[in-house]
Structures are given as structure tokens and as C-alpha cells.
Amino acid sequence: MANSASARKRVRQAAKSRQHNMSLRSKARTSMKKVITAIEAGDKKVAQELFQEMVPVVDAVARKGLYHKNKIARHKSRLNAKIKAMA
């Protein structure tokens, strides 16, 4: 356990930061899953709308360093390609 006051404060800060990061990461995952669900359902219009809502959410998460920017770019690219490939 942390002994000094500064170490105890860092433990508190880390816990608060971890909660915030988990919330943002969960929000990003949920937005991606919604797009995937719409694609699997075959609803192109809804998938496009959800994709447009997803992009700023995942970009913000990448900017904060919770996911690597290339990983987010890869997900956006693949989902967009799947949407465009829909009939």
C-alpha cells in the first residue's frame, strides 16, 4: 500500500482516471458494435447514420491515447468499406 501522501494521492488519481478511461473505451466499443449490427442486419441507411455518429466518438478516444490512432483508422476503413459494399 502507498505510504507517502503523494503516493496515496496518485492512487486516488489513477482510480479516477481508470474509471474515466473505461467509460470512454466502452462508449467507443458500443458505437462500433452498433454499426456492425446494422451492417449484419443489412440496413445500409441506418449503418451509414450510425457510422457518422461513431467517427467523432472513436476519433476522440484515439486522440486521448486510449486506442492507437492506426487501430481506429483501420476500424473506420473496414466498416466504411463494408457499408459501401452493401447492396
Rank of each mutant, 00 (worst) to 15 (best):
M1Q: 09
M1L: 15
A2I: 04
N3Y: 15
N3H: 14
N3G: 07
S4Q: 02
S4G: 08
A5R: 05
A5K: 03
S6L: 04
S6Q: 15
A7H: 01
A7V: 09
A7T: 06
A7R: 00
A7F: 02
K9R: 12
K9D: 10
R10P: 11
V11C: 02
R12C: 00
Q13A: 04
Q13Y: 04
Q13W: 06
A14Y: 15
K16T: 13
K16D: 08
S17M: 02
S17I: 15
S17P: 06
R18C: 06
R18W: 01
R18H: 02
Q19E: 05
Q19G: 02
N21C: 10
N21S: 10
L24N: 01
L24G: 03
R25K: 12
R25G: 14
R25E: 14
S26M: 06
K27R: 14
K27I: 12
K27S: 13
A28F: 01
A28T: 11
T30W: 08
S31F: 00
M32N: 01
K33F: 01
K34G: 02
K34N: 11
V35T: 03
V35I: 08
I36M: 09
I36P: 06
T37A: 09
A38S: 10
I39T: 07
I39P: 00
I39A: 04
E40A: 14
A41D: 06
A41M: 10
A41V: 13
A41S: 08
A41N: 01
A41L: 13
G42T: 07
D43G: 12
K45I: 08
V46S: 09
V46Y: 05
A47S: 15
Q48K: 13
L50A: 02
L50P: 01
Q52N: 09
E53G: 13
E53Q: 13
M54E: 11
M54F: 14
M54Q: 12
V55H: 13
V55C: 15
V55D: 10
V55R: 09
P56M: 10
P56E: 12
V57C: 03
V57Q: 04
V58R: 01
D59T: 12
A60D: 12
A60E: 14
A60C: 13
A60S: 12
A62L: 07
A62Q: 06
G65F: 08
G65Y: 10
G65T: 07
L66K: 10
L66M: 12
Y67M: 05
H68R: 07
K69I: 11
K69V: 15
K69W: 05
N70L: 03
N70H: 14
K71I: 08
I72D: 01
I72Y: 09
R74W: 06
R74G: 05
R74Y: 10
H75Q: 14
S77G: 13
R78I: 07
L79V: 01
L79G: 00
L79K: 01
N80S: 04
A81T: 07
A81Y: 03
I83A: 02
I83T: 03
A85Q: 01
A85H: 03
M86W: 05
M86G: 05
M86Y: 00
A87S: 11
